[in-house]
Amino acid sequence: MSQTWCLAKFNQPVEARAAIRRLLQSGVDPQSMDVMTSQPIHGEPFLPEKKPTKLFAWALSGAALGMIGGFSLATFSALAYPLVKGGMPIVAPWTVGLITYETTMLGAVLATLAGLLVELRLPSFSGRPYDPSVVDGGVVVAVPYSDRNRKAVEEAVHAAGATTVNWV
């Protein structure tokens, strides 16, 4: 049995905040709710963060991996088939440094993208509550409900001024 959701839409963030306060009082787990908007809302977060984002750490680790990878590639590929060129050393620190720099950056880029997708568990094409009308403005609060607390959820969102409420 999949989770059932209440999707309540509010015109204003302040109304959504009021609804969230009521829902929390009625005992809904804050971790289970989702707040959707068409743009990032500046101000206090609607809900406490489950886990702070570690994207910066992702980027740093990617950079470190890229650095090791580029250094090894430039060094060991030269040593694997040593050819003297232009009287230069087989492994020249200057050029190894250049390659290492570029792969470090490449690592950071790819790791940031990967970290974003992993932290958000994207791509995901089904099973998550969503109200497409959110792209035309407003705030949609998604609350999980069961037969037991449906009434409490309904009261809370209506009291806060929800314009539309969908039960899915």
């Binding site: 088939y81 050819l83 003297v84 060129k85 232009g86 009287g87 230069m88």
Partner: peptide, 19 residues
């Protein structure tokens, strides 16, 4: 040339210095 400018610029090692 022993320090041939042509050698290091080849991306695929098509030119190099023999012993």
């Amino acid at each position: 040339c022993d320090a041939a400018p042509c050698e290091p610029v080849c991306p695929v090692n098509a030119t190099y210095h023999t012993p």
